[in-house]
Structures are given as C-alpha cells and as structure tokens.
Amino acid sequence: MAVLQLRDVSKSYGQGSRRVDAVRDVSLDVDHGEVVALEGPSGSGKTTLLALAGALLSPTSGEIFLDGDNVTRYGARARTRYRRDRVGFVFQGSNMVPFLTARENLLVVGSFGGSDRSAIRHRADELLEQLDLGAVRDQIATRLSGGERQRVAIARALMRDPSLLLVDEPTASLNFELGTRVVDALLSEVHRRQKACIMVTHDDRMARLSDRIVEIRDGRILSERPLS
C-alpha cells in the first residue's frame, strides 16, 4: 500500500462568481522510498496540494490517507500531532528559527513531543553528520549559507522520523550546483530511510532528479512521468 494516498481531492476558495478551484479531483499515490516531483507554473495548485497533504488545509472534497489513516477526518489537535510526528516539511528558503543554531533548530522540533532529551540530541547530531553539517552545527541559522540552511531544513524535517516529506521549492534561492547538492541529499535520505516524498519545483532540471514527475495545471494532474 502506498504511504500517501490522495483520492479525488479538491480544494476551492470563495463562493459563487468568486469561487477559485485551486485543486480539482486529484488522485495520487506516493510509495515508500519514492520522490514525486510536482511540476507546474505558478498558481497551478502545487503548493495547495502540498498543504493539503500536510494537513495545513482541509480539502473541500475527497480523502487523504497516510499509512492507511484517513487524515481528512482529523480534528485540529490531531492535525497538529500529524504534522509533528508523521510529516516533515522543507519550506522554500528553509525557514529556520533565526536566533537558533543549526543544532538547536533540530532540537526544538524534537522537543515538541516531549521525547527523551538525550535521544533527541543524539538524533540531531546524527542527522547533522549524515547531511555533512557537523562543522556548522553550532552556527546561528542566519550565518549559514543557503545550501547549508536547506540541508539543515532537511535534517529538521527528518528529526521525528516521519513517513512523509513535503518539500516546497527547496532550491528556489540556490544556484544550480548548490540546488543539485541539496536535492541529491534529499533523495539520498528519502531512499535510504524509505520515506515518501513530494517535492514541489519550478525547475525541470531538479524535477528530473526525482523518481516521478507529476505535472499539474489549473489544479488538475496533467501528466505523470516515471523516471526510474
């Protein structure tokens, strides 16, 4: 069974003549160890789809399942727990807590669930090493380079060992070389840890590094291209 299943998911804003259909009847499965690149122009519904999968938004219709659980039935608290424990987000521009170090940015995520402190520290250090960030772990986030920040964001997303990674334009603020390194690091972690991942991108070069490209236009899936 796929880790993430979207079944006829639609999302509309407004009513009557002002109604905007951001996502229309989208069905999509993402498997363990698979990176799906969502490609499309601005306003095509990519980010809305990502927000729906991450329970930041509730669909107008349709259902979303993660590991067989119907996420669309969750209340506000359950959605917070879902985002905390089962989903890892990597945002455009990384969005670190600016006054924390790289390591503290990971620790703060670990502390949300009240887990064992030494286990949290150990996992943070392990992730930072694996993403080649050991040397900058005590640097304040604002002093990290763009590439380092995005890798810290990937490490942060993996902190609570989620089933699903949702990645929004991870290379938007990076040059091609740095962007490739960040996406490589992301793919490597997703494959190694057997996570499901949706990566939104404008950049076809980055999309081609994924396992499958899903092209989206006007809120609908236009095409799907497996790459590996």
Partner: peptide, 15 residues
C-alpha cells in the same frame, strides 16, 4: 511568519 512555520512543523499553539 516564524510562528506559522513552527505551527506547520507541529508546534502546538499552547507551546
């Protein structure tokens, strides 16, 4: 924006 990020990654409002 930062509070939104923290909430998005699972920080409860009460925290």
């Amino acid at each position: 924006a930062l509070l939104g990020i923290l909430k998005a990654i699972g920080a409860p409002g009460s925290y």
